[in-house]
Nucleic acid binder design. Structure first.
Lengths: 349, 349
DNA sequence: CTGAAAGCGCTTACAG
DNA sequence: CTGAAAGCGCTTACAG
């Protein structure tokens, strides 16, 4: 049982009131230097640490920010993406002496419970929401309520929200440009992400727009759900339904699906990149490790988490009004799966 | 600005005191059923959610548990391992209506700040500590202080700690047994993990013990640090220093290093598994995705996180005394890198 | 200038 | 049985 050392204990040891001790620790002018030093020493000796509950109640501030993850399914939660976002959040939160809370819905049925509880119980001063579906009412509600919220991603229908994201359309256009220009691919297939998320729509639109710009009007699209299995299923469907005139380039909306697709292609004896180019999206770790490595777009998830959290503190501190979108640049990472040389250098130790 | 709805607001709406409203919401007998219903309805209408600070201050309980990650380096933090542990923690914490706090040291120099602050500020009722080094004084201090702490891993020198882990020695023995018995490998190399962590020592000891049991007395060992690069560096060293009598089986202390090693072997034109068998440890995601897939030990990280958190709540609630180790079973997962058939089935959707 | 009360939101132990 | 005070730990606004 931790006998919590309270401010009163520190004060008693020095012989002042707890109010005085509080001011002394805060370095307040009105406390004599002598007393300040004595209080600080007593606090150190007793191992005093302010009670977060007491401080929070008094200051109406939790000194904590929450990461809200809409669906807690292992599929989504297991994603390296969240680890990167969380790392970025931690960096920013540490700089502000704030805690990071991770909030998940236990099951999908419980809907917005994680949202509501974290926010209104004032357990956190604000929240980062990522991977929210376009029609997720809870996000709408949160943003509309005026609570400090920063979204990661693009939410064109929530114009007055603060958000941080990348340009999925342009990034996908660059992938397609590369396939057409550098590798002379023209029979294009796109396996989409979840189309109830803006990223899914944007990457598909980028694909279609780029194909059209190159005068390719028979580009095809299969719907996926970002899981490795759905990537595999899409390619199985392709091989089953189209025995000739198969694509010579496949643009997967993320690396997980590309991994599943590569597996099916390999089993079918179709060579990558000789017979078909493959590209993915994300570069959170998988794409570097497959054979061949997957050409992809590197999404700066950690930086997104960090910047989103900085924006959130600006909001919480009232240093910023409640709108504005920050767009981060992305890089296309060329590896073997598109037909480029697989990066022969190995990362410096 | 979130105009927090307080218990007083709810009480005022119904015309009772906030004390009465509190009891009504708690379903206390002494409040008439009629009033109870009225209060509950008012609370719902106003969107009342209890203030976590008020409740925490009063009840001396934060209803939160912390995951303490000793070194925040991206290398460690980025690991899928933590995501799995965090998922398990969330499951258990949700069941107890508690929040999950992730606490990291901003930089390695700041030592035990994350430990001390989280715990003594009573921001969390207890903590899970994972991946702590053997000589980490902070862990010792935490455990000794009597605060509720559950460790993930094996800490033989902290006999009175509550911990959850696997048997790394036996698991590694099983890997070696497989290589020797099924694939007739006898020229064995082990690339270790970090030897200031018990897992590193245990996996090395398991390797050496199993080799000896098979009458192999020239098994060799190279020290690694669990990073992909150190796996690559170990194999580069091997190829440089030993031009003949090279190993026919390499046991990496984790999958990340095995990935780095596979890359170097492939560039050197050495075939896996024909020329050399490779096995790893962890199975957090990478091992399934390489070509060939990596034979490995599946560490039940999510379950470890879940069970550790359940133990922690037992400790916090006083339902358990402060010692005892829970050992979880592990499975060896056979894939192509050891010489077994690469799993031809693909996971059911 | 300094001492000590008030009050953040909550719930339980006490007084009536 | 029920009303309302007390107090968790903190810090600021107020009284002296």
């Amino acid at each position: 049982m931790p006998k919590s050392v309270t401010l009163k204990d520190v004060a008693a040891k020095v012989g002042v009131t707890s109010a005085a001790a509080s001011m002394a620790l805060a370095g307040h002018e009105r406390i004599s230097e002598r007393t300040r030093a004595a209080v600080k020493q007593a606090a150190a000796e007793l191992g005093y640490v302010p009670s977060s509950a007491g401080r929070a109640l008094r200051s109406q501030r939790a000194d904590a920010v929450a990461l809200i993850v809409p669906n807690s399914s292992t599929h989504v939660f297991g994603h390296l993406y969240f680890m990167h976002v969380l790392t970025g959040m931690s960096t920013a939160a540490n700089a502000h002496d704030a805690q990071v809370i991770v909030s998940t819905n236990a099951d999908t049925s419980s809907g917005g419970v994680a949202y509501e509880r974290v926010m209104r119980s004032r357990t956190a001063d604000g929240a980062i929401v990522t991977s929210a579906a376009i029609d997720d009412d809870h996000v709408q509600g949160l943003v509309a309520s005026g609570l400090p919220v920063v979204l990661i991603g693009n939410y064109p229908h929530l114009a007055d929200a603060v958000s941080v994201g990348i340009d999925d359309v342009t990034a996908t256009v660059r992938l397609v440009d590369h396939l057409v220009t550098e590798h002379a691919r023209r029979r294009l297939l796109h396996v989409t992400g979840t189309l109830d998320h803006q990223t899914g729509i944007d990457r598909r639109d980028g694909f279609l727009r780029a194909a059209a710009a190159h005068g390719i009007d028979d580009a095809s699209v299969i719907e996926g759900d970002l899981s490795e299995d759905s990537g595999a299923a899409a390619i199985e469907q392709l091989l089953r339904e189209r025995t000739d005139d198969r694509p010579d380039a496949i643009v997967f909306a993320n690396d997980d699906m590309a991994v599943g697709g590569l597996r099916v292609l390999r089993r079918a004896g179709i060579r990558v990149p000789e017979d078909v180019s493959v590209v993915g999206f994300d570069d959170f770790g998988l794409a570097r490790v497959t054979t061949p490595g997957i050409t992809t777009v590197r999404v700066p998830a950690e930086e997104m988490g960090r910047i989103a959290t900085e924006r959130l503190f600006e909001l919480v501190d009232g240093r910023r009004t409640g709108d504005g979108h920050t767009e981060l640049p992305v890089d296309v990472v060329l590896r073997g799966s598109c037909g480029c040389d697989d990066d022969p250098s190995h990362p410096a130790p």
